[in-house]
């Protein structure tokens, strides 16, 4: 009990930090994931190959390893001086994009082929067909796995705390180093994560219900 009250500002900063890193990498993962899914179903072979390579590489690499690359290698060769927050967003966003891509692709595959054929027949380009006809109809199928992916992302964001990003997990380490009972710290931290993950579940439930009516 004491820990929470004594260090409320720290808990708050940690909570907001986790929220920020989760939000920014979720956005990045969503944009990249949909784009790469488009690549993977594209009629252009090099794009398809790029998409497959992207997913294979990122999905099969341990996230901690990606963090090591992002924090120690990327600043050396690509973006010198990038903040830990940006680097962590890159690692989490790229990693999660591979899962988003596969969820979106499975959604695309549930849309009957005739829909895309009809769109192409009235002269739509590939990207128009995807954006205007296929993806809107895939969304409903994609929502449930997407909710799981973003919950996993929230929890994965704890790794960022170990790479000097301000977040819940980082603060828990700080406080336990100060000698507070680890059990209580973990309890409060866990509850804070639950607030975020339950909110994600609720958000997706609302989205699913709304999509269900729209058809």
């Amino acid at each position: 009990m004491n820990v929470l009250l004594d260090y409320l500002p720290e808990f708050r900063d940690g909570f907001l930090g986790t929220l920020a890193i989760t939000g920014s990498s979720a956005l990045l993962a969503l944009v990249l994931g949909v784009l790469i899914a488009g690549f993977r179903v594209s009629p252009i072979p090099p794009l398809r190959a790029f998409g497959t390579a992207w997913v294979t590489l990122l999905r099969n690499t341990p996230l901690t390893l990606l963090f090591l690359v992002a924090v120690f290698v990327v600043p050396q060769i690509l973006v010198p001086g990038a903040s830990p927050f940006v680097l962590a967003t890159l690692a989490l966003g790229f990693y999660t994009s591979s899962f988003v891509c596969e969820a979106v692709r499975s959604g695309i595959n549930t849309v009957p082929l005739g829909q895309a054929e009809a769109a192409r027949s009235i002269g739509m380009t590939f990207s128009q067909t995807l954006r205007l006809v296929v993806l809107p109809q895939a969304t409903r199928t994609v929502l449930p796995p997407m909710s799981s992916i973003f919950i996993a992302l929230t929890k994965n964001s704890a790794i960022a705390g170990a790479f000097s990003v301000t977040d819940l997990f980082g603060h828990s380490k700080l406080l336990s180093d100060k000698g507070y009972a680890i059990g209580w710290i973990f309890l409060w931290i866990a509850l804070a994560y639950l607030v975020i993950t339950f909110s994600i579940s609720a958000l997706f439930r609302v989205l699913e219900r709304r999509m269900g009516v729209a058809r």
Binding site: E117, A119, R120, G123, T125, Q137
Partner: peptide, 23 residues
């Protein structure tokens, strides 16, 4: 590609299974 898309716009197609955009 784009050129084929342009040409398809001039060729109407009606399918056995209608294929109206469901959404």
């Amino acid at each position: 590609g784009r050129e084929l898309a342009r040409l398809r716009a001039d060729v109407g197609m009606v399918f056995q299974s209608f294929n109206l955009f469901a959404h």
